[in-house]
């Protein structure tokens, strides 16, 4: 009996065979000793593969191809045909159009001569793009918390660390302040880590075995001012609405305010805290919670442009109470 492609197609359709099974049949026939059967088996396979590649969505064809390969590998009688399937596959499709995700399944020459290409500089820019992204993703604040309090031990050390990522932007400084506030106590002793870093970056700063139990905010602020003299501290506060900003305690709040007071003579930019609801609601609430209960020397709302009209004199405590209610409403 003559096995034509048409017959095969009809046969498979009649039995509702899956794509994998169709390919399996085609491959088995392509292995036949009879030349005619072999040809029609091969053609049938190629027709199927063509259809696979024609699929517009890369992911769909990838899933199907992977499915077929897995099916062939796992079935006892067909596993020996995997290689011929791969061959057909690469024959049918120019290599540069093969999605990366299929690379490990296809033959090893998938990446043939890739290094030769690399050598002749085909992809140089891509590396630099990744590198640029990496640099932009580097978080100075996280690094400081990994290094620990030790990096603010004196001006030279602090400068050394901060200058790893110049220029210092307002957003970076804001995150640094966030980290410092959050970790004002209880940071594990990372002295070793810090010391090693200094020697590793070839620091000129000497590494004395001094141990700090908290951040030295004076050193930090001075270093920031030195490295970024034109920094806009109002803008720094405006950047506080970032993931992870949280004021855990009253001391942390005091610490934050002492940094601000040392850094900047301007009144605290209330609008950054109060004007709108932050993305990081928890962070905003934590700030307000301690802000309203702080004594006026430390924090005051008196600069606010939108004060409630007070008809009569109120003692401070009551006023705080009002403010608290007000902000609660505002935030919720």
């Amino acid at each position: 009996m003559m096995i034509s492609e048409q017959l095969l197609t009809d046969f498979c359709d009649e039995l509702h065979l899956s794509a994998s099974e169709k390919i399996g049949i085609g491959l088995a026939l392509a292995d036949s000793e009879n030349v005619d059967i072999r040809t029609s088996g091969q053609n049938f396979c190629m027709g199927q593969i063509e259809e696979l590649w024609r699929n517009s969505a890369v992911i769909d064809s990838s899933v199907q191809i992977q499915n077929i390969i897995m099916f062939l590998i796992s079935s006892e009688g067909l596993s020996k045909h995997v290689d011929s399937f791969m061959q057909l596959l690469s024959l049918m499709e120019p290599k540069e159009r093969t999605p990366l995700i299929l690379a490990p399944l296809l033959s090893d020459d998938f990446y043939d001569a890739r290094n030769m290409e690399l050598f002749y500089g085909c992809r140089e820019n891509e590396f630099d793009a990744i590198l640029a992204e990496m640099v932009s993703e580097t978080s100075m604040a996280d690094i400081m918390s990994e290094l620990g309090n030790g990096c603010t031990v004196d001006a030279s050390h602090c400068n050394e660390v901060l200058s790893l990522f110049l220029p210092l932007t307002e957003a970076t400084v804001s995150r640094i302040l966030g980290t410092i506030t959050r970790t004002h106590t209880g940071l594990e002793d990372n002295q070793n880590c810090c010391l090693t870093l200094y020697s590793a970056i070839g620091s000129s700063a000497t590494c004395e075995a001094s141990c700090l139990s908290s951040w030295n905010v004076h050193v930090l602020v001075d270093s920031i001012k030195q490295l970024a003299p034109n920094i806009n501290w109002i803008n720094v506060v405006e950047n506080l609405d970032h993931e992870g900003f949280y004021i855990p305690s009253e001391q942390a709040f005091f610490l934050f305010m002492s940094i601000y007071l040392r850094a900047c003579q301007d009144p605290f930019p209330l609008h950054a805290i109060c004007r709108s609801v932050w993305k990081n609601v928890d962070g905003q609430l934590s700030f307000l919670r301690y802000a309203v209960s702080a004594s006026p020397e430390i924090f005051t709302f008196s600069y606010s442009a939108r004060k409630l009209l007070m008809r009569f004199h109120m003692d401070l405590q009551t006023m705080h109470g009002y403010l608290l209610t007000f902000w609660r409403c505002c935030v919720s």
């Binding site: 159009r97 093969t98 999605p99 990366l100």
Partner: peptide, 17 residues
């Protein structure tokens, strides 16, 4: 990035699914 073809051509990518 993951479905990108080897030569960086991802034009074939469609959101059909």
């Amino acid at each position: 990035t993951l479905l990108e073809r080897e030569n960086g051509d991802n034009l074939l990518w469609k959101m059909g699914f």
